[in-house]
């Protein structure tokens, strides 16, 4: 019992952000170069394991999803429909396992943004934030993208839309242009002039890439607020085994968790009612937990077992190490 207690204390004293940084590097290598080791985790991953990266170690679920939606409606009830279902179930299984930590710990595009953030911070420039009102509007865009990435391919098979609309989201996703660069593949950094639609989509893709780089420099996790994968995850996030819980009675509403939050979730500080505090933009990086000075106010649980808690002792240990 004593050793479990000590282990718990050791974990609670630690800085999860440092652990996360290392973990992200590992996950990044696995997903970008995993192919060299013949690793293929899954073709339905709830994270941006981009299919345009040649030697990747897994594939983003949005890729098969968009392909599957390009199917005549009657086929959904046949064997091909079962394919759609198993794909989705695999995605769901992986999501339930790690919940939105796929964003905070694994997503290569998220990791790239965190690296850009580190670069910015090292230069000594401050980050920007959104006014509350704008934030509320912006973070709904991801659902529009999610609906479009399902409806447009569906329109190809059922409404006679041009084939150029296959995988429309991938065409504008910054993962497609940026992640292949890590295997020295510049081939996605082009505008495809073969058709009007392609010019539009790849042109938009290039614009988004530019905005992504500038945005990630100005704001922490800039792109994540727009990410349709994040929206899709959130719909099922409540089923997750990995959870972030808050004990509102212990909260002083000091607002520090909100200030350190890379995606700017205000409820983490102000909501004293909800037990489950994973909000739609949350990426489960748990920076809030390590920034909280109140004993057991915020708790990370896996399958009902507390694996990382905010503690007074841990908080001051981390603060002392800073700088």
């Amino acid at each position: 019992m004593g050793s479990i207690k000590r282990l718990k204390q050791f974990i609670n004293d630690s800085d999860i952000n440092r652990f996360r940084t290392y973990f992200q590097v590992g996950a990044f290598f696995l997903l970008i170069y995993g192919g060299y080791l013949a690793i293929d985790i899954s073709s339905n991953m709830p994270t941006f394991a981009c299919p345009f990266v040649e030697m990747r170690g897994g594939t983003c679920y949005l890729w098969p999803l968009q392909h599957q939606m390009n199917m005549e409606i009657r086929h959904f009830l046949t064997g091909r429909g079962i394919g759609v279902l198993t794909g989705f179930l695999t995605f769901l299984f992986l999501l339930i396992l790690f919940n939105k930590a796929w964003c905070g710990f694994i997503c290569p595009l998220g990791t790239v943004q965190d690296w850009i953030t580190k670069l910015r911070a090292n230069i000594g420039i401050r980050y920007g934030t959104y006014p509350e009102k704008d934030f509320k509007k912006i973070n709904k865009i991801k659902y529009i993208l999610l609906v479009l990435l399902i409806l447009l391919p569906f329109g190809i098979a059922n409404l006679g839309l041009s084939h150029d609309w296959a995988t429309p989201y991938c065409m504008i996703c910054p993962s497609r242009t940026i992640l292949p660069l890590f295997s020295a593949d510049l081939s996605q950094l082009v505008i495809d002039f073969s058709s009007k639609t392609k010019v539009f989509l790849t042109g938009l893709g290039m614009a988004v890439t530019g905005i992504f780089v500038v945005g990630a420099f100005a704001k922490r996790r800039f792109f994540c607020l727009f990410c349709p994968m994040s929206g899709l995850q959130y719909i099922f996030s409540r089923l997750g085994i990995l959870r972030l819980e808050k004990d509102g009675s212990r909260c002083t509403r000091c607002g520090n968790c909100y200030r350190v939050c890379d995606v700017g979730i205000k409820e983490i500080a102000d909501d004293i009612e909800s037990r489950n505090i994973v909000k739609e933009d949350c990426m489960m990086c748990f920076k809030c937990v390590s920034a909280c000075p109140e004993e057991r106010c915020l708790t990370v649980k896996f399958g009902g077992i507390a694996i990382y808690e905010s503690t007074e002792r841990g908080f001051f240990k981390r603060i002392e190490k800073k700088g």
């Binding site: 911070a121 230069i123 000594g124 401050r126 000091c254 607002g255 520090n256």
Partner: peptide
């Protein structure tokens, strides 16, 4: 209440933490 610091590289961010 302690001051909670996250990024330490910019004066503005530190001031925000102190103000909060």
């Amino acid at each position: 209440d302690p001051v909670v610091i996250d990024e330490t590289a910019s004066l503005d961010i530190l001031l925000g933490a102190v103000a909060d």
